[in-house]
């Protein structure tokens, strides 16, 4: 019932976005299409390339309604139409052997493995640091302000340097990208986890004290379970940050595989459809990762009796 109440509006919004996209294809591609049509001796107004250049995409499109169909089938469009991107995705994801370099699944795995390794490192370190911050006053006062400030800093700018720095001491491949991913997912986890471990109120802490619980029991039986909703919220931020980190980590080094590499290849060899397919591939991957985390979150919180907190 509730799901249906959101489904219809969501589908409508997506349909509107798709509609705008499809409508934008004509004016965006009309110049290229007109040039191509002129070469094939199809009448175009105005008929010289110089005159067409003067016109905006919209007015040129209105003068040449006959060639609108061609704007959707260009080989190298400025703006590919949704069905071209869909066809490219279908072709490179389903039709190609996943181990081939031409398959997007292969590139997805390259990026994904770096993302997941970095996410695991960053999350583990983040949780450990958060525990340290909650239990050690000196650490809290020294490190916490830096952890908060670091979220206002464009850390991603460090990516090219990390790659080259690690390369010059002989570390290449998966690990440098993972370090960037780890770094990006680290800080959200620290900040969220500190908040979560501190979420039990004084009454609950006092209750444990009346039970004569020691510090370890207080951690495992109260603070850690209470922090779970906060942890999952920051994990979801962390995993998408980790994916962005891995993609950007592939850009400056001229990586040969991964989503970032596909985007660069499409960009440099003038194959916009490849860039767009890589972009959508990355978006779908991000969505799947967040969806998997949401599923684990719902399962975990329900088993812990916090189903209400997840909604």
């Amino acid at each position: 019932m509730n799901a249906l109440r959101t489904l219809f509006p969501v589908v409508t919004v997506i349909a509107v976005i798709l509609g705008i996209w499809i409508a934008a294809v004509v004016p965006m591609n009309i110049h290229l299409t007109a040039d191509q049509a002129a070469r094939q001796d199809i009448a175009v107004t105005p008929d010289t390339p110089a005159e067409r250049k003067e016109l905006s995409g919209l007015s040129l499109a209105l003068q040449n309604t006959g060639i609108w169909g061609m704007t959707y089938t260009l080989e190298r469009p400025r703006l590919p139409s949704p069905h071209q991107v869909g066809a490219e995705l279908w072709d490179t994801v389903v039709m190609k052997n996943p181990t081939s370099r031409r398959s997007l699944v292969y590139h997805a795995w390259v990026t994904l493995s770096a993302t997941l390794l970095g996410f695991a490192i960053g999350t583990t370190l983040g949780i450990l640091l958060a525990v340290g911050i909650v239990y050690n006053r000196t650490m809290d006062k020294s490190v916490m302000p830096w952890a908060i400030t670091s979220q206002t800093i464009p850390i991603l700018a460090l990516a090219p340097m990390v790659i080259v720095m690690m390369g010059s001491i002989g570390i290449q491949g998966l690990l440098p990208k993972s370090i960037i991913s780890a770094y990006l997912s680290f800080f959200p986890v620290v900040v969220g986890m500190v908040k979560g471990l501190r979420s039990p109120d004084g009454m609950q802490l006092d209750l444990l004290r009346t039970y004569n619980a020691n510090a370890g029991q207080g951690f495992w039986k109260l603070r850690l379970p209470a922090s779970m909703p906060y942890l999952f919220a920051s994990l979801k931020i962390g995993i998408s940050a980790a994916l962005v980190g891995a993609i950007v980590g592939e850009l400056p080094t001229g990586a040969r595989a991964g989503f970032g590499a596909r985007m660069l290849v499409g960009d440099q060899y003038g194959q916009p459809i490849v860039t767009w397919a890589a972009l959508f591939g990355a978006a779908i991957t991000a969505a799947l990762l967040v969806a998997i985390l949401s599923l684990i979150e719902r399962r975990t919180l329900r088993r812990m009796g916090m189903a209400g907190a997840a909604a």
Binding site: R5, T6, P9, V13, I17, F259, G266, T275, A283
Partner: peptide, 24 residues
Amino acid sequence: FLTRGILPVGAFMAALPIVGTAPI
């Protein structure tokens, strides 16, 4: 109606690697 559609779609878009649109 629009609000109920835009909230989930917008939250989803906010989690995507939009920085990848830079080459385009």
